[in-house]
Amino acid sequence: MPFLCGTALAQGYPTHPITIVIGSSPGSATDGLARAVGMEVTRMTGQAVVVDNRAGAFGGIAAQTVARAAPDGYTLFMTTNTTQAANPHLLKKLPYDPIKDFAPVSLLTKGYQLLVVNPQVKANSVGELVALAKKEPGKMSYGSGSSSAQVAAELFQQVTGSKFTYVPYKANPQAVIDLVAGQTDMMIVDLAASLPQVKAGKLRALGISSPKRSALVPGVPAIAETLPGYEAGYWNALYAPANTPAPVVQQLSDLMRRAMASPAVRQVVDQTGMEVALSTPDELARFQLAELGRWGQIIKTAGIKPE
């Protein structure tokens, strides 16, 4: 009977507005992707899609909101490896279970980050930044509003033997604002939050965290050119609350596949330095389990202690 009810629900789905909850503020890569996808879903279904920004606690506030929502397909969670793979290794207490509380819908994108500094920092390359940081360990600082940004910077320190003081933020866009203002010195952060400031001359890009250079910033070397093997990326995916009927989850997965293929969404993906990486619900479930282990190893290697 539950399956039949779920099938009937899916056949008429959606019949009213959908809310996509995200754990970051406006201006982040996830925010831009959620709004672009939402517009496409509206175009395809005729139903409005509302993006609900709930920054804070490394996405934990947003995750908890969706975990407690009705499992009917009308409250969704667009998130990253921060909440679904890294937080269990970074935080001693989580207000949600990244596996049990959610129904995987689809992997959406994968992306990389820019190493950026305030223009007042007297470094024009990764090597110069490392040398500068080593002169006075801990004097320079880095900001972070996500686990992807934090782990990338901590891994950078471990690989180079440098020491920066960590300054936490609720979301990356706020951290970028303070970096521009000179309140911090360095970040390794998604292109959506950092590239506009680089193009405006308000930040200097020293490297990108991908294995090779990106066409979006062709003049910026890969960090790996100076630090062989260095790589730090992130991914976006869509989830529904646990116990959402399988037919509704499949309907959502199909909507995501169609939305991500649209020129408008592809443009947003390209502009933010990401690449489309779609999956089935089962494939996302397996991918997330593998990522839990991988991020746990990265965080352990970086020497980050759970807080």
Rank of each mutant, 00 (worst) to 15 (best):
F3G: 04
A10Q: 12
I18V: 06
I18Q: 02
I18G: 04
I18E: 02
S25H: 03
A29Q: 14
R35L: 05
A36N: 10
V37E: 00
G38N: 11
M44C: 08
Q47Y: 14
A57G: 02
G60Q: 02
G60H: 00
Y74P: 09
T83C: 05
P88G: 06
L90A: 05
Y96I: 01
D101W: 07
Q113Y: 07
V116W: 09
P119V: 08
P119C: 08
Y142R: 02
S147T: 11
S147N: 14
A153D: 12
Q158S: 08
A171L: 05
A171G: 10
N172L: 14
A175F: 00
D178F: 09
G182C: 12
T184C: 06
A192L: 03
G201Y: 05
G207I: 06
K212P: 08
V220N: 01
P228R: 04
G229T: 11
G229Q: 05
W235S: 14
A240D: 05
P241F: 13
A242F: 01
P247V: 02
Q251V: 12
S253L: 02
R258L: 09
A259K: 04
D270V: 11
T272N: 13
G273F: 07
M274G: 12
E275K: 15
L278Q: 08
L284C: 09
R286K: 15
E291D: 15
